[in-house]
Design a protein around this nucleic acid. Structure first.
Lengths: 253, 253
DNA sequence: CGGGTACTTGAGGACTATCAATTGTCGTGG
DNA sequence: CCACGACAATTGATAGTCCTCAAGTACCCG
């Protein structure tokens, strides 16, 4: 268990009205009422360091977060320490919804990079459902989107070969990252280690390394500066037999 | 693709007021208003045969179902035919929510036994959100529960050994089935073939057979009448290192 | 009886895991 | 500036798991 610091800021660097994410084409327009409610809903911002554990399996968190910046991953552990990464979170994604609804967290979340999170009170979720049916619908939509991603991951781990899996995963993450403008300069830099990939794909670290090496030999991906970059997005999709995620504009809570 | 008949009944054998599921201890109480709205929401009943395809990936279904009786499974296919079973549906479960929210179905659903389904109109979902925040919350809760099950399955396929996976899956299904009173007589009879188990666990049919055989040798499960029965539930849980799903009472839409 | 489906079993080979070591990078302390 | 430890990536060897191929059995149904 890591003990990296979690600092919270009393002040808001990003009031909702000036949310840096909302203008992105990936997100749908919100009307004034909705925006002002979200602004009330937001309790503050939380900055966490790389490696910090944001949420812990088994705990009862009173909060719910939206990623403002940075990357994280969601995972579960077996009693003997085997780890399975379930999905990744990046800007615009909701963290901790499952815990808010079901009471106890059933998975943990760890930051892959420094992150800035918007903090919401779990308690106010009821008010949201009572007074903002549109937002309530959005939250269900977001849960459903997560489910869809899990379905894809399950298909991948269960039925794709190691090489296809790796290709799928990298294409999938890169595709999501591009959707939220994480490709400022060159291709997106995905800040993960091969151990993360191994724990996502259900492979050993050694075999993951050899598999990624094959992708690199084919010039489909590059591994630089402790992270990975896509070399040939379409090549990855084709190898993985993956259609891509037909992402329409989505809500941002 | 199967072409078994799907018959619809104009009449209702089970008006919501006499729903055979609602009295079960697995489900939470609903108030009168909620019940009467659900009764309006319900459009009719649909009877499908074993083997029938209830929903098809890629289609735009106008409906959403709740299982009244029978079993089904949700799956995805790779272009070359490899199949991954994502989860199973049994009485009380919602089918097709993802499709209703996201437009296009991203997975297919096939009946494992004859089924009776309550049919709802996707269109009315908005009215539900507008006027019944409690039910809206319930629907999100249900989506979240599905996500939790997928998380567990992902952990299983990714990090458990073949033997543990099989033990987990059978314990998991049996546990859910018991929750909805499917153990009328003796232990629950799970109406699946070894091919289904193989496609759920990400294993080949042959290896699945050998794995199940080991479970049978240990008297943890029995295979009879083309279905499987639990021989030693706690033994399965222990072998799989699985805690069980702490199921509180849940909503029934 | 023939044909279909589901379950079994054995054998050989492909794919992955484990073990053990090496390399390279980076930040810290001498 | 270099030694040092920590971490990530890499590689080779060996063993084990799992897949594919190929048959064979059992049962049900027309």
């Amino acid at each position: 268990m890591s003990s990296q610091s979690i600092r919270s800021f009393a002040s808001r660097q990003y009031p909702c009205e000036k949310c840096p994410l909302r203008p992105l084409p990936a997100f749908r327009e919100f009307d004034k009422q909705e925006l002002s409610f979200i602004s009330t809903f937001k309790r503050g911002e939380l900055a966490v360091d790389k490696g910090a554990t944001v949420l812990v399996e088994g705990s009862h968190s009173a909060h719910l977060y939206t990623v403002l910046s940075g990357w994280a991953f969601r995972y579960k552990l077996l009693p003997d320490g085997r780890r399975q990464i379930l999905n990744y979170s990046m800007p615009g994604d909701l963290i901790g919804l499952q815990g808010s609804l079901m009471g106890e967290m059933q998975h943990s979340v760890e930051a892959l990079s420094p992150m800035l999170l918007c903090v919401f009170e779990r308690e106010q979720l009821h008010e949201l459902y009572r007074n903002y049916p549109g937002l309530a619908y959005d939250i269900t939509w977001i849960a459903s989107r997560e489910e869809r991603m899990l379905d894809e991951n399950l298909l991948s781990i269960g039925r794709r070969t190691a090489l296809e899996r790796a290709a799928y995963l990298i294409a999938f993450i890169a595709s999501r990252a591009r959707g939220v403008g994480l490709n400022g300069k060159t291709p997106v830099q995905i800040p993960i280690t091969q151990q993360h990939i191994a724990d996502t794909l259900g492979l050993s670290l050694v075999h993951t390394n050899k598999t990624i090496r094959k992708l690199m030999d084919r010039k489909l991906v590059m591994w630089r500066d402790g992270g990975c970059e896509v070399g040939d997005y379409d090549g990855l999709k084709k190898l993985a037999r993956w259609e891509g995620l037909g992402e329409e504009r989505r809500p941002l809570i």
